[in-house]
Amino acid sequence: MSTMRIFDIAGSAMAAQSARLNTVASNLANADSVSGDAQSVYRARMPMFQAQLDAANPESAGVRVLGIVESTAEAQKRYEPGHPLADAEGYVYAPNVNVVEEMVNMISASRSYQSSVEVMNTAKELAMRTLTLGK
């Protein structure tokens, strides 16, 4: 039934946006996790979104998380010879997490999530009113 399709679509959007919020949380939490070499340091993660087309309903598309990719930006190199994790030359490597970018991502994800909640609420209300038709 097609009313329920709206719930599927809004639900897929909420799931995708919460995956995005999760990666933001992970990135912010690890923003200061330094490492002794550039390879093993934490890298910023981000989800890839893709429209989810349903063969039975080609008109309407939900969204799905295709996968989580890691940023390929360079790790930040800091000269801290006193740091216990510092390499032979005295450098530590900080993650390539851009905190400002992450905050913007968080706000965008939360706004999109709210939009989907709103859509779902409206669809629910209309479905309820349809069910009580003539009463």
Binding site: S2, T3, R5, I6, I9, A10, S12, A13, A16, Q17, R20, F49, Q50, A51, N57, E59, S60, A61, G62, V63, S108, A109, S112, S115, S116, V119, T122, A123, L126
Partner: peptide, 22 residues
Amino acid sequence: QRRMTLLAGNIANADTPGFQAR
């Protein structure tokens, strides 16, 4: 209802690269 389903799909894909709203 069909229109709302379409629009819900648009809103759901607000952050999907290359998605074209209908």
